[in-house]
């Protein structure tokens, strides 16, 4: 009993320093989840780089949720900050994929148009 009291004396200040006084990072959790939603909507899972970033974000969000449940809010906050950054990167990577596709479509259309013009008598 004495021994456990002793450990409590040591651990409590440590816990306090680590996050007992930190409130659950609900806003950060919402931000990170919102960012992953955006990435998914933009087709992050169709682009390998974006898919990886999104996966990292998802994993860290679930780790953060676990940490919140365990009362380790500080660790949760750290994970969520990272998760949000990953999700935002995933969003940008998905947009890059969209731009590449649009660019390819433009090149294809241009070639098709050129061909059409040629068939209609324009010079190549």
């Amino acid at each position: 009993m004495y021994k456990s009291l002793f450990s409590l004396v040591i651990l409590v200040p440590l816990l306090g320093a680590c996050g007992a006084s930190v409130p659950p990072p609900t806003q950060r959790l919402a931000d990170a989840q919102s960012a992953t939603r955006s990435a998914r909507e933009l087709g992050a899972n169709s682009e390998p780089a974006a898919q990886l970033s999104l996966k990292l974000a998802d994993e860290q969000i679930s780790q953060a949720q676990k940490a919140i449940n365990d009362g380790d809010n500080k660790r949760a906050e750290s994970l969520l900050v990272r998760a949000k950054a990953d999700a935002e990167l995933a969003v940008a990577q998905s947009r890059e994929r969209g731009a590449k596709i649009a660019g390819q479509v433009a090149v294809d259309n241009s070639a098709a148009q050129e061909n059409t013009n040629y068939n209609q008598g324009a010079e190549k």
Binding site: R95, E96, K100, A106, S110, Q113
Partner: peptide, 20 residues
């Protein structure tokens, strides 16, 4: 880097579209 590349791609696409 990604945003920069995306802009570059957009720019090239616009170039193609304008040329077309």
């Amino acid at each position: 880097e990604v945003v920069g590349r995306t802009r570059q791609t957009d720019k090239e696409k616009n170039g193609v579209v304008n040329a077309m």
